[in-house]
Design a protein around this nucleic acid. Structure first.
Length: 110
RNA sequence: CCAGAUAGUUGGAUGACUGCUUUACUUGUAAAGAGGAAAGUCCGGGCUCCAUAAGACAAUGGUGCCGGGUAAUACCCGGCGGGGGCGACCCCAGGGAAAGUGCCGCAGAAAACAAACCGCCUUAAUUGAAAUUUAUAAGGUAAGGGUGAAAAGGUGAGGUAAGAGCUCACCGCUUUUUUGGCAACAAAAAAGGCUUGGUAAACCCCACCAGGAGCAAGAUCAAAUAGAGUUACAAUAGUUAGUCUUGGCUGUAACUGGGUUGAUCGCAUGAUUCGUGCGGUAACGCUCGAACUAGAUGAAUAGUCAUCGAUUUUUAUUAAAUCACAGAACCCGGCUUAUAGAUUAUCUGGCAAU
């Protein structure tokens, strides 16, 4: 299992705002299509409202594992995803998070 | 044993599976991988650049008992003075108020070139039979009362019409001398006879210190091309974080080739860590030996599970829930603030026993 390529420039994050959008319990998912590339890319956003640096790091790390396990297998190629973490991602069981991500992927590509 | 004081230490542990960053090489393996505060960014340095201009004066900002430590400090250590605590011990922004200016709410007569509300005392005249009575005027006085954070030395005695450093004793203050101490300062003696209320985290005065901006500093390479740079010549008008002097810059010609984006360096061998010995009351310094211990850049240091540990609650050898404060970003030395629980040493007061 390889880790996904991460989005780095702020241009990509701005473009994700215009793309598809789905709201879940523990995170928000944004997605947009890029025709040039042939792989899945992921970006993470955890805002300051969620807590201090320790909490934000923890959420980001859990989301990173979630993306590497679920998104890498079930995501669609040529699409870029941005995951925005919420407080619930800190507390929720990991299995439930995986299920959430699966349903979110189904609904966003409907 | 109880209640405290001071200085510290620690900051959950082990394993399995699956990953991330860096380094090394045999290229798929091995090794290493958050803190005591990594935080706040309040001070001080290293390092880098700014044409890293020089000197004098001024301005601005900071520091403020004395001695020592340090690369340096507003930090640390030791001492002095003042204050608090039965004590161990703790706290202090601790120069100058007779250089000048300002301020001192309310209360109070008066908040500073001293003053006199209630009082106390003397004299004069008036009333009255008289008096140590009553009211009025002139003067003396600050002991007592009351106000306040603070009322122009304090307490006691003498003295006086009543009083007053008016006089005396003790204490305080000021000045001088001597002794001890590197010094801050302390002690003693003599004289003065009390003259100068507080506030300088109000302006100010005195002494000492300080150029500015920061690793998004800055350097190299690649693509891409000037508004920049270097050298020579001319001029003394202007300009150069306040003024003056010296120096630099602005013009013309020739030559060299930027911003911006990406990559690499800067970037971890250092005022480093650990130990031995020596010096010093201590902070700390020196000698010798050993070790290499995070280096990311939308940003690694983890995710899940199991067992143990701790805490809380409960139906109590069981079950459930929870795990302090908090996440490196060029690097060090401090300060400040946050911090569950566990734990070590020394000391103080009290109780009990011997």
């Amino acid at each position: 299992m390889k880790s996904l390529v991460t989005l780095k420039s702020s241009k990509d994050f701005l473009e994700a705002k215009k793309g598809l959008f789905y709201r879940s319990r523990s995170f928000l998912l944004q997605a947009f299509e890029v025709k040039n590339s042939n792989e899945i890319k992921v970006g993470y956003t955890v805002s300051k409202q969620n807590g201090n640096a320790v909490v934000r790091n923890k959420i980001k790390r859990r989301l990173r594992v979630l993306a590497n396990t679920v998104l890498a297998n079930y995501g669609i190629k040529k699409w870029n995803y941005v995951i925005i973490g919420k407080k619930n991602a800190m507390v929720e069981d990991f299995e439930k998070l995986e299920n959430e991500m699966l349903t979110a992927l189904k609904k966003i590509h409907r």
